[in-house]
Design a binder for these strands. Structure first.
Length: 271
DNA sequence: AGGTTGACCTGGACGC
DNA sequence: TGCGTCCAGGTCAACC
C-alpha cells in the first residue's frame, strides 16, 4: 500500500490521537510472519509503556515509548502493501485480519490490520533510536542526491525503489517523479547528467510534498488512522494510466517492467 | 558485490 | 453464479 506520503499521513494521524497515552494491554494474533521480533518481546516491551511520539522513518512508522524512567524503546510498524494502523474505540468490532491491538488506558485501541500480511511489527531497544538505512528524500541536498546514483548500472527507477539508497519512495512516486523530471525509467542511474539529477530531486520533492498535503494516494484500500482516503491519486500523471494519453503531449503511455515492478512512462516526454 | 528474479499473502477485477 | 487468471502501494532470500 503505502509509500512515504501515506506512511507520514498515518504516523501523524496516530501521533495526534495517542501521544502521551499509556498502553494497558497488548494482544497479538500469533501469525508468525507478521512479527519480526518475538511476540512475547513486543508484548513485554509495550505493556505499561507510555507513548512519547509517533513518527515516520522511510516507510516505517516508529512509535517511541518510555517505560519507567528514561527506559526508551521503539515499536516499529511496516505496513507492507495492505497494512493499516487504526485508532478506534474498544467497542468498535475488530476488522478481519487484525494482527495486533494496543489497548490504551483511556478505552481506545491502536490496531494493526493487514490482509496480505506483508507488513511487519518489531521492537527496538538499542540506544540512539531507530534511523533505518537510506537517505531521507524530502530533505536530501542536491549535492548528496547527486552522489547516490554514481557508478550505478541499475535503472534509475530501480535505484529510486532501493530503500538502502533512498528510503520512502515506492512505485507510484518513482514513476510520477520520473515523469515530471522527463527522465526515462530505464536509464542507468550512473548515466544521469547533473541537470537531470537536479530535475529529478526537485520533481521528487515536489511530488512528495504535494502528496503529503493531499493525505497520500488511495489506489484501492489505503486509508489514514481515521479510515479516511487520500486524494493524490487525482494528481497521478502516469501511475495506473497505461495506454491512456499523456496529459502533457497526448502520446500513448507505455507499460513496461523495471526492477520487477510495473512501470508507466511517456515515450515522448521521457528520454 | 551489484543486479535480477521469484516467493511471500489475500482479495478484487475481469473474462468465459 | 462460479471458476480461473491476473494484478496490486513492498521486501527479502536466493541466484547469476
Amino acid at each position: 500500500m503505502p509509500e512515504l506520503p501515506e506512511v507520514e499521513t498515518v504516523a501523524n494521524g496516530v501521533d495526534a490521537r495517542v501521544r502521551g497515552q499509556k498502553i494497558a494491554r497488548v494482544w497479538t494474533s500469533g501469525k508468525p510472519q507478521t512479527f519480526k521480533s518475538a511476540e512475547s518481546e513486543i508484548v513485554e516491551t509495550l505493556t505499561g509503556a507510555k507513548i512519547e511520539k509517533v513518527r515516520r522513518v522511510g516507510k516505517t512508522i516508529v512509535m517511541d515509548v518510555v517505560r519507567g524512567k528514561a527506559h526508551t524503546a521503539q515499536f516499529l510498524v511496516h505496513l507492507g502493501m495492505t497494512g493499516r494502523l487504526l485508532v478506534s474505540k474498544a467497542e468498535v468490532p475488530l476488522p478481519p485480519h487484525t494482527h495486533a491491538v494496543l489497548s490504551l488506558t483511556d478505552g481506545r485501541e491502536v490496531r494493526f490490520v493487514d490482509p496480505r500480511r506483508f507488513g511487519r511489527l518489531s521492537v527496538e531497544t538499542a540506544e540512539g533510536g531507530y534511523a533505518g538505512p537510506g537517505v531521507e528524500p524530502t530533505t536530501v541536498s542536491v549535492e548528496e542526491f547527486a552522489t547516490l546514483f554514481k557508478g550505478r548500472k541499475l535503472a534509475i527507477k530501480a535505484a529510486l525503489l532501493n530503500q538502502s539508497i533512498l528510503h520512502g519512495v515506492g512505485n507510484i512516486y518513482a514513476d510520477e517523479s520520473l515523469f515530471r523530471a522527463g527522465i526515462r525509467p530505464t536509464k542507468q542511474g550512473g548515466k544521469l547528467t547533473r541537470v537531470e539529477l537536479e530535475r529529478l530531486r526537485t520533481a521528487l520533492q515536489q511530488v512528495l510534498k504535494k502528496a503529503i498535503e493531499l493525505g497520500g494516494s488511495s489506489v484501492s484500500d489505503y486509508v489514514d488512522a481515521d479510515g479516511v482516503r487520500g486524494f493524490f491519486q487525482q494528481e497521478h500523471k502516469v501511475y495506473g494510466r497505461a495506454g491512456e494519453s499523456c496529459k502533457d503531449c497526448g502520446a500513448a503511455l507505455k507499460k513496461i517492467v523495471v526492477g520487477g515492478r510495473t512501470t508507466i512512462y511517456c515515450p515522448k516526454c521521457q528520454r
